[in-house]
Design a protein around this nucleic acid. Structure first.
Lengths: 213, 213
DNA sequence: TTTATTTACTTAACACTGTTAAGTAGTTTT
DNA sequence: AAAACTACTTAACAGTGTTAAGTAAATAAA
């Protein structure tokens, strides 16, 4: 009954996917903390312990959501492959990264701000380090290297510049997401709201790069 | 019995402080998540519900720890007041900020990465927005303005530059603290460890400022 | 001095959380 | 027909933040 076994296998994958879909629904509606195993179970109509037949633990689910987020981000970045000018593409990557974080703060959280998916990688996926992160960073690094091939940022280490660009936008969006920024905007004495402050500061960073290139 | 009332008041403050000290001990030993109300209560030898006579809820305790962290950071920044050259002071602020985060990752977390202390401020302290953050940012902003008075960064908005400097170091240290950085260092193909990568990237940012000033 | 009230704290409980051990129908294999 | 395996459930453990209700002691009022 090989055919039947294949059907069983398919059913297994279906339920695993149904769990993920339920988790995603709760996650985007109410955030990670409010997404409990029991709520996911109720959503799919199974008992809570069934979840553990398809996912090791909650960190496993966190990592699955983490991967889902990276699929969304990859779609955005794929669209930027058509931008030929590498410096223009670098700017576009930054703007899209910020926009992604604004539009999907919960995904951003599980992708770049939570330790749970990382500890899951540590515990159960020894072969590769962090494939999702690596892919995104490679795209960024490649763009920086293309900039250098075009004669820009020539006296810099490409990895250091890529990492700086990443941590710059990461710093901006995390301060926004954690609500630290909205509590401090009037200290800065500009009539920007928090989102505008993020965007304007990124544009200023771009102008830094422009003057340094 | 006014004298007696004063004694009672002092006792109240003593216990409130004892709770905070117990919370701090557990917090630095095992992190915020592992610091439960029940554990704090056991530490001071009272029942869990007693905590609620001195702190509204766990967010209140999170905010108290948040404040403790800012006291530690302020001590570091106080020592930098003696640095006369504002650009040198700006660099020193950044290096000290990074060093503080490396040495006190849990405090950094509760100060700049968690929403709980911020939501507590939102709910119960309407008068002032975020005094701790404001004080730190004012010190940074003041230093930037002194730089401008000395003829540096003249064609820039001081608040935007201050915010950029802050979010740059914040981005660096948060990627380090959440273990995202250690999972990606070999992608960057440099023989730096995660801490060195943070430091080197900051030094590169400094050299950016140096060339732009 | 006796009664009433306030203070400081505790016990018990609610409604959750992630996770595991043990058990149970139903299907498949022997 | 009997044994074995699959897919799932019930019950439970050990914890979480938080609140309502109760208690003993200290103080204030009669």
């Amino acid at each position: 009954m090989i055919e039947n076994q294949a059907k069983k296998q398919k059913h297994r994958e279906d339920l695993r996917l149904a769990i993920l879909e339920a988790a995603k629904k709760l996650f985007v509606q109410e955030g990670y903390e409010a997404t409990s195993i029991r709520k996911i179970a109720k959503e799919i109509g199974f008992s809570p312990t069934t979840i553990y037949l398809y996912y090791r633990d909650k960190n496993d689910i966190a990592y699955a959501l983490h991967q889902e987020g990276f699929l969304l981000l990859r779609d955005r970045f794929m669209a930027l492959m058509s931008v030929d000018n590498p410096f223009e593409r670098l700017k576009a990557i930054g703007r899209n990264y910020i926009d992604f974080a604004f539009q999907n703060p919960d995904y951003y959280q599980v992708m770049f701000m939570m330790k749970e998916p990382m500890t899951f990688l540590d515990m159960h996926c020894v072969e590769e380090e962090w494939p999702e992160g690596k892919r995104v960073l490679d795209f960024l690094l490649g763009t920086v290297q293309e900039c250098q091939a075009a004669g820009l940022f020539t006296n810099m280490h490409p990895s250091l510049l890529a990492f700086q660009a990443w941590s710059t936008v990461h710093g901006l969006v995390t301060l926004y997401i954690t609500h630290h920024l909205s509590k401090i905007t009037e200290t800065f004495a500009i009539d920007f709201n928090a989102k505008e402050l993020v965007s304007q500061t990124f544009e200023q960073y771009i102008s830094f790069l422009d003057r340094i290139k």
